[in-house]
Amino acid sequence: MKKDVNITIDFAGLKLASPVFTASGTCGYADELADFMDINALGGFITKSITLLPRKGNPTPRVVETDAGMLNAIGLANIGLEQFIKEKIPLLEKMSAAIFVNVAGQKIEEYVQVTAELAKQPAIAGFELNISCPNVAKGGVHFGTDPAGVRRITEEVKKAAADKVLMVKLTPSVTDISVIAEAAVAGGADALSLVNTFTAMAIDTEKRRCVLANRTGGLSGPAIKPMAIYLVNKVYNEVTKKSGIPILGLGGIKNASDAIEFMLAGASAVALGTYNFIQPARAIEIVDGIGEYCRRNGFDNVHQLTGALE
């Protein structure tokens, strides 16, 4: 007889319906995926990056497929804080998944201002601090690669976030990701999400030019999964296991097996990114698949998977 499996999780104090999120920049601002699946079965939903002022983003080409992956250089194109509050918060209020707003900026004050304003919104459960976007000239990775900078921005934004959960998103493009993770935790991060895309480049050999207008972009998709798994496991063992800070694992997940790999490596929850583009109902299939795996393997609670690597 099949056992009932509890797939709800506690994530930095939030009670989530499942351990599956959709990743920032791959699921729109709010209900864009509702046409394809029951978004209320998601544990969490992370909006596109929001900046203080609207951003036009980069010229095209902004995306290109590479071997088992893709590069993007969107350039944090977004509608800005004011329009986000006016147009998207009413849609987010109707969703039951925990809503995380991905916050980006060029200066710490910008991050603080956006976070403080959005912390007043009851519809928002938390923030994902984007200090790891590879595609803008200032900000992004610039903040995310310096431990002292990471600690400082985390401290400042944590104050602005008030009682909301603060998750810091880490770039993989550093020498030792644990040093950065440690800095974020020291700064007061309630959770970590890793990894963001890998800075990468593709060249059109006929034109002898970079394919992307931005020249470089962020590599995502199945191509990065083994590296992302390794980094999650490293941060789990070296930083978060002892502090009890949960990890949101992401990077190349396409199905439940991939998601389970991340959890076994140490993630408390996972986020589906690039694959939303290909199979927009996949996140919910992963929720079902994780439950099925637990049943088959005798786990009665999905959190037992976290760090269960032998």
Binding site: T26, E32, L33, T60, P61, R62, V63, M70, F277, I278
Partner: peptide, 13 residues
């Protein structure tokens, strides 16, 4: 160039 066709990726500006 599009990654999704559904407005999610914001690539096809």
């Amino acid at each position: 160039r599009m990654a999704c066709g559904t407005g999610l990726c914001q690539g096809c500006a």
